[in-house]
Design a protein around this nucleic acid. Structure first.
Lengths: 222, 222
DNA sequence: TGATGATTTTCAGCTTTATTTCATCTCTCT
DNA sequence: AGAGAGATGAAATAAAGCTGAAAATCATCA
């Protein structure tokens, strides 16, 4: 899955790139508009993540030029959380989706996967893993017997993180980083509390404890 | 933009499907009448392209059954160039447009886009969703028992937005964008106020709250 | 134009729910 | 047994949403 990331801010692009690669994308990085336009046209990407607000050439313009060239690669744009006009302009220019900054990497990944699925016409619902399915639309988890449970925002993000990393150990710090924006390192047992809530809702065995290392999502057994 | 293509001739459907997908439609294919009828009723398509002259069940019959079910998805029918009687029958059965075979794909795409626009902008006859119907003329909502309620302009726009997106979470910002043009003062509880008014008129359960996410229209229960 | 009624918008206090903290308990490893 | 890591339940805090009423706006018509 080849992806072009257009982002001028190194502070943002470096970790983002890392996370996306973690998720299995082959990431190319373009740091400014002209370069982005060239790469987007030359290479056949599966996806493009475009940060609006580039220095030289505006992201909108780059996108317009791609579309004018007949390039139909799915594009998701990143905008400031409240820049409504940018989004509209983005859609008009041919964007397929947008995401407001700041965002959780998981959220971006989910949107990207949705875009890929859409563009491949592989209609499918949400993320499925270990016998559970996530319904992003309604922020619910679907159990094997089709029963749906409501989750709170934090519970949902945490569970998504687990489901994206089934059978992998996730340290508490890693989980904290993914569930909460940015830093956040207060010494608190938040993760423990939410692990408990998830276990209450999904069953105790779904998330195992690896003492001293973290937690691991093993899914529900049949 | 989700589209159902009902076409039994593989030689025609395969390239057509490809072209439509190229144009940005998510295409589902039904190869014969019974299947088509089922899919059209189960899935909430934006458009249906229906080839008359299916083997088992006639396309006309399928269309009639959809309409009988209250399904108002825009339907464009494909007929032989000279079969004017089929066209008449098609319109009587509730088709929104027709196209004679053979045709250029571009022509079909243009008609489809026009149809979408028409159905989204004006919804001429009346949108039906979740047991409620809208009377655009009189700006009223029609309850399952045929009782009519007057709505104010804002209430009406808001409800229409919900009915077009049944069972989907709509965030307050998204709703604001639909109900009010352009940008808008962000910190105001207008949406909450109008949600309340709608609930007062339609019943509390019709619109559910997904705290932190938005609202979701689930229709009236039977 | 100015009065009237309808509709839209604002506001402040209230209720509900989610998040976070905290104190205490339990387990496991040495 | 003791120390560290995690679990648990309850309580405090902070958000998000709800509500009723009043103020502002708009439309209509005499």
């Amino acid at each position: 899955m080849r992806l072009l990331l257009v982002e001028d801010d190194e502070l943002l692009s470096a970790p983002l790139r890392h996370d996306l690669e973690q998720q299995g994308f082959a990431v190319d990085l373009a740091k400014e508009g002209v370069e982005a336009e060239f790469m987007g046209n030359e290479i056949d990407y599966d996806l493009i993540v475009l940060d609006l607000g580039l220095p030289k050439r505006s992201g909108i313009e780059v996108l317009q030029n791609w579309r004018a060239e007949g390039n139909t690669t799915p594009v998701i744009i990143l905008t400031a959380r409240d820049a409504w006009h940018e989004r509209v302009a983005g859609f008009k220019a041919g964007a397929d989706d947008y995401l407001g900054k700041p965002f959780h990497v998981e959220e971006l990944v989910v949107r990207l996967q949705a875009l890929v699925r859409r563009s491949h016409d592989m209609l499918g619902k949400g993320l499925q893993s270990g016998g559970l399915a996530l319904d992003e639309e309604r922020q619910q988890v679907v159990l094997p017997d089709q029963v749906r449970l409501d989750l709170t925002g934090t519970e949902f993000r945490l569970l998504r993180c687990f489901m994206l990393n089934k059978d992998k150990i996730l340290s508490k710090t890693r989980l904290t980083e993914h569930v909460y924006e940015q830093d956040f390192d207060r010494d608190s047992n938040l993760i423990e509390v939410y692990i408990r809530r998830l276990r209450d809702k999904l069953g105790k065995q779904v998330i195992e404890t690896r003492r001293g290392q973290g937690y691991i999502y093993v899914g529900v057994e049949r």
